[in-house]
Simulated assay, not measured.
Amino acid sequence: MNDNIKRIDPRRPFVITAEGLKRITLGEIGNGVVLDLASMHGGHKQAVKARRTTKPAKRSLLVAAHTDRGALDDHARQALAAAALLADDETEVVLIAFGEFKDDAAALGADRYIELPAFDRRSFAPDEEVRALTACVAHFAPVRVFMPDNATGDGDLGRRYAARADGSIATHVVELDHAHVASYANAGRAFASRALPDVVLLAANAVDARLPFVGAGEAVSAEDIVPVAKVSAYVDLGIEEMDAAQVALEEADFIVSAGNGVSDIGAFETLAGTLGAAIGASRVAVDDGKFTRDKQIGATGKTVEASVYIAFGISGAVQHLQGIKDCRHVIAVNLDASAPIAKRANLTIVADAQETVKALTDAAAAARAARAGGGSIMQTATVAEGVAA
């Protein structure tokens, strides 16, 4: 045995890092105080991203996309990133947001943006949207226009605008650089490319939306740029409401899911019906016979891509987390703040799942009654505050 080897004594003094970890280091004396080892030893810290350019803009690239609940989806963010990556230091990136916009435009790569809250993704007003986009193009005079090529409004708007403006267009673009764009042809058996057109409709996942820089993020008023809407030639009959219970979990946009912490299944199903959400469950809840197998979410069940996923009383096994990895907003309700699902959740409510189900049901019913009786927004906000408390 070699007695010359230095060993760490687990009982010797230690330091506590900013992350709350105990560290015992040979040659250093600790006293149990909190110490920022990252700054002492050159550890990595989250770097502040620099502005893409600070030079005056001589030209612009325009990105147009519809928002969903005030935010751009991943496909729209990729289109914005594509424009930002192709822009030189004398080119600004301008975002036209059709709908309410609450995202951080600078972090997404936009130098300037216009919010058009009058245009909702759920309504159908193609002529007015083309008029608005045409007016923005006339104002900013962009070199070209980028849009996500999707089936929820942007792809249709891009094609209508290109036809109206008699401009060149490339659709389903999967590859682009400063000189060309490319798309699959002949059912994916061939690859077609051409010079950059006036309008680029980008396929999903063609560009990484994560950028190494930020834009200026300056808001521009739509007044005096976008014309006042006229009476549309179309009659929008709205979206036909569907019973959320009849929607397949893989297609559901709003899901409430129950785990072992939910004991009153009837109350949980009532909440789902009140919120208009589809019902999911953990494997434990399914194995206990509380839900049928087709409701199971996870690696051994179904993988979902909901915009909102609320997990009641689910601890978050690895298999379950795999099933919700593509969900946009995850809310966890659990008594254990250190449960694995809390690391995945965007918001964790440390509370009893059954009590929270009842509180949300009461709040939703009160909010509906307030709206039906002409109650004010303040009354509804008071109800929400009561749930949060």
Rank of each mutant, 00 (worst) to 15 (best):
N260D: 09
V262I: 12
I265F: 11
A267K: 07
F268A: 01
F268N: 01
G273T: 10
G273M: 02
T274M: 07
A277L: 03
G280F: 08
S282P: 01
R283D: 11
R283M: 07
V286C: 15
D287Y: 02
D287G: 04
D288Q: 10
G289C: 06
K290G: 06
F291I: 00
F291E: 04
T292I: 00
R293S: 15
D294E: 13
Q296N: 08
G301M: 04
G301Q: 05
K302D: 13
T303R: 06
T303W: 07
V304K: 08
E305R: 06
A306M: 04
S307K: 10
V308W: 12
I310M: 15
I310Y: 15
A311P: 02
F312G: 04
I314V: 01
S315Y: 09
G316Q: 02
G316F: 09
L321D: 02
L321T: 09
Q322K: 04
G323D: 05
K325S: 15
C327P: 14
C327N: 10
R328L: 09
V330R: 00
I331G: 12
A332V: 04
A332D: 12
A332H: 06
A332N: 13
A332F: 15
V333C: 06
N334I: 01
N334R: 00
N334A: 08
A337M: 07
P340W: 00
P340M: 00
P340N: 00
I341M: 04
K343I: 02
K343E: 15
R344C: 05
R344E: 10
N346L: 01
L347T: 10
L347R: 00
I349F: 14
I349E: 03
A351R: 06
A351I: 05
D352Y: 11
Q354F: 05
E355M: 08
T356A: 07
V357I: 15
K358N: 11
A359D: 11
